[in-house]
């Protein structure tokens, strides 16, 4: 078990360093990949997004992109209590880790561009 602890910790540390280096060194791909930032489109700060924290005025951050889900909320299949707490917040992790009964399928991914209003400053 000691060996497993040491090996897993080392691999984890190396992997985190590797992701950091890769993000710093590798050039972002061109626009059109879905999450790529466009320098000409609106840019919003996290503070600005945080002001839109109501079910009727609901903005969210997913990755580096900002979405206005105000009109989508009534269509969301789960209990509104599941999604409304994320209004005005960074919901990236919640979006990425939905579980059984609430999977974010490729179909859900395809809906995102419709509600995209810009990128994070």
């Amino acid at each position: 078990m000691r060996k497993l602890f040491i090996a897993s910790t080392l691999v984890f540390g190396l992997a985190v360093c590797g992701f950091w280096l890769a993000s710093a060194v590798l050039t972002p791909p061109e626009a059109g990949a879905g999450v790529v930032q466009k320098t000409t489109e609106p840019q919003w700060s996290a503070e600005e997004v945080a002001r839109h924290d109501r079910p009727t005025d609901c903005w969210m951050i997913l990755g580096r992109e900002v979405f206005d889900f105000s009109t989508y909320l009534p269509q969301h299949p789960s209990d509104p209590d599941v999604i409304t707490p994320w209004c005005g917040k960074d919901a990236s992790e919640a979006y990425l880790t939905k579980t059984k009964g609430r999977p974010h399928s490729p179909y859900a991914d395809s809906l995102l561009p419709k509600y995209r209003i810009g990128v994070l400053k």
């Binding site: 985190v16 992701f19 890769a22 993000s23 972002p28 791909p29 879905g34 990236s92 992790e93 990425l96």
Partner: peptide
Amino acid sequence: QSPQLAWQALAPWLLS
């Protein structure tokens, strides 16, 4: 999607 998005999933200061 991009190395930047990969790092954003890890970097604590980019998270909530």
